[in-house]
Amino acid sequence: FSITQFVRNLGLEHLMDIFEREQITLRVLVEMGHKELKEIGINAYGHREKLIKGVERLI
């Protein structure tokens, strides 16, 4: 299971460039909250919320 699959499953594949540029893996994403996601350029609250909720389902 990769970050690419995870992001695609959430319908947020347009954010993949950010994850690749910042070298974010699923392991790193698990540790990130709204503040960190915003810092790397994910400005939409809804997108950040989707990512965080998606990660919570993985754990």
Rank of each mutant, 00 (worst) to 15 (best):
I18H: 05
I18M: 05
E20Y: 10
I3A: 05
I52Y: 02
G54D: 04
N9M: 13
Q23G: 15
E56R: 13
L29Y: 02
F1T: 12
V30R: 13
S2V: 08
I42S: 01
V55F: 08
K35E: 11
I52W: 03
M16T: 10
M32E: 01
N9D: 14
V55Q: 02
L26S: 03
L26T: 03
Q23F: 08
E20A: 11
V28Q: 14
M32Q: 02
L15M: 05
R48K: 02
K38I: 14
R8H: 14
E39H: 09
I3W: 06
Y45M: 10
Q5V: 12
I40L: 11
D17E: 12
A44Q: 14
G46M: 13
D17N: 11
L10R: 01
E56M: 11
V55K: 05
H14P: 07
G46R: 15
G54Y: 06
L37T: 01
E22L: 07
D17M: 12
F6P: 00
E31D: 14
A44D: 15
E31H: 13
I24D: 03
L29M: 06
E31N: 14
T4C: 14
V7C: 11
V28I: 12
I18Q: 03
G41P: 00
L58N: 04
R8Q: 12
Q23C: 10
M16A: 13
N43F: 12
I3V: 09
V30G: 09
L12R: 01
L37P: 00
R57H: 11
L12N: 01
G54K: 04
I24C: 03
N9Q: 11
G46Q: 15
G46E: 15
H34S: 03
R48F: 07
A44H: 15
T4M: 10
E36P: 03
L29A: 01
T25M: 04
V30L: 13
L58Y: 12
T25S: 11
L58F: 12
I18R: 04
A44R: 10
H47P: 10
K35P: 09
V30Y: 09
H34A: 04
G46K: 14
E20V: 14
K35I: 06
L51H: 01
G46L: 14
E22W: 09
T25V: 05
Q5M: 11
I59G: 08
L37S: 00
I3P: 03
I42Y: 00
V28H: 15
Y45F: 14
H34Y: 04
V7S: 02
D17P: 15
E39Y: 07
L10C: 05
Q23D: 09
L58Q: 05
T4Y: 14
Q23K: 15
H34I: 04
G11L: 03
L26D: 02
L51D: 00
H47D: 15
H34V: 03
V55S: 09
N43I: 15
I42L: 05
E20H: 11
E13D: 10
T25K: 05
K53N: 08
L58G: 02
V28A: 13
N43M: 12
D17Y: 14
V7R: 02
T25H: 05
G54Q: 05
L10W: 03
T4P: 07
I52R: 06
F1S: 11
E49M: 12
F6D: 00
K53M: 09
G46N: 13
L37F: 07
M16K: 08
L26V: 06
Y45R: 14
N43D: 13
K53H: 13
K50Y: 04
D17H: 15
H34K: 02
G54F: 04
Q5H: 11
G33E: 01
L26N: 01
K53T: 08
